[in-house]
Design a binder for these strands. Sequence first.
DNA 1: TCATTTTGTTAACAATTGGTTAAACCCTAA
DNA 2: TTAGGGTTTAACCAATTGTTAACAAAATGA
Lengths: 237, 237
Amino acid sequence: METENKKILLVEDDPNFGTVLKDYLIMNDYDVVHAKNGMEGFEKFKKDDYDMCILDVMMPYKDGFTLAKEIRDKNEDVPIIFLTAKAMKEDVLKGYKVGADDYLNKPFDSEVLLMKIQAIMQRKSTESVADSKQFEFTIGGFHLNSKLRFLTYKDEEAIKLSPKENELLRLLALHLNDLMPRELALTKIWRDDNYFTSRSMDVYIAKLRKYLKKDINVEILNIHGEGFRLVVRSDES
Amino acid sequence: METENKKILLVEDDPNFGTVLKDYLIMNDYDVVHAKNGMEGFEKFKKDDYDMCILDVMMPYKDGFTLAKEIRDKNEDVPIIFLTAKAMKEDVLKGYKVGADDYLNKPFDSEVLLMKIQAIMQRKSTESVADSKQFEFTIGGFHLNSKLRFLTYKDEEAIKLSPKENELLRLLALHLNDLMPRELALTKIWRDDNYFTSRSMDVYIAKLRKYLKKDINVEILNIHGEGFRLVVRSDES
DNA sequence: TCATTTTGTTAACAATTGGTTAAACCCTAA
DNA sequence: TTAGGGTTTAACCAATTGTTAACAAAATGA
């Protein structure tokens, strides 16, 4: 199943900063949903389960603390990190009363944020199951070992995959039979989303299709303008 | 379960800063011994077991790097964090092949130090301690005695291994059939990760491959950009 | 329909990484 | 001090990987 990455709800009204931060977190293997204001943030929180919330405090209409209280009402445990514009002790305290796990003064070092996230995730999941990354997949008649970067078909000799081939196929496998958005692969694997990286990705899709030809029931479909879909048909014909 | 506090050796010549830092660490549940100079630091290190050393680099008489080397002579594993002046660049630091676990530029955020300490402690505790005691391995038709540094194939005469050959093969054997990352060997055996140590490692891989040729089912495979994999095939044909 | 955008595929190229051999450079024990 | 094992560096070549160009095909929308 796709219990792969930790899911973070990022609520930040500054679109530039929010996007940069989102991409940075995605690059570091988190699934990020970005809400542009408190209202939207709460809606998105209700609609899904998150492993962590990162809330900007200074937001129009509904500030981060108010949002945090609403979130706490729904979920007592989800870790909350506040992003504050200045070092304000009162506000910080107010934040902790809501049950915040940490706070960060803007501007902050993104590495520090990452470390805080990791530390909190660790703390929260000390008793829960080890969150080991998923490295092995069965794709029709194929077996993908993503750690050792090879793909085997039945008893044939393993096909060695390049890092990009491997990551792309893994991402497709994580979304098996479902849409794997172009943008996701580009931000996670290429760490950049532009014309050339997109074309490069297409090249890799072609390479993967060549490998996957051996099993007639396995196919990578394109969803025009959206992304790709790795499908496995059950072979009754 | 109440676990004992981790013990930290802090070597810092500035009495004010040292005291503040010591108190801060104590407040965060570490046992701290504060030495005021390199000499004293080494004396205290010899007298007790520490879970971590935090060394100021800029110290009179004996600088942090020199002290670190002495400490490494006594103990290969204890984590070391250097406190350096802001001006120092990474290449300068890497010149000192000591095997530091982290660096911090003064002045630093004490919270960052705390997080780094926690991260390193965590890493060290999850590193399989059992590994450090395993010295005998069966690798296909070979037997490796890593303590006596020799490799035997069936009944043939033992091949004597040099220290580096031995450590490298042992590390590969510990990860039998699995990835042994380049970086791991370089940090554990060479204690430095740069172009030349990497090339040196390749030379040793070539030497080991030559030894292992006797058994056609044993092979060292490369995973481009990642590391090596010692594989043993079961010989059925 | 036609024009435009998006995708599919191949090939050329540059850049990086690995394999091997041999020589140079250490140490340290005799 | 030198001889010799152990290790690093150099040199050269091979393999791997990723990007881009070029052109073809498919999808889309006015």
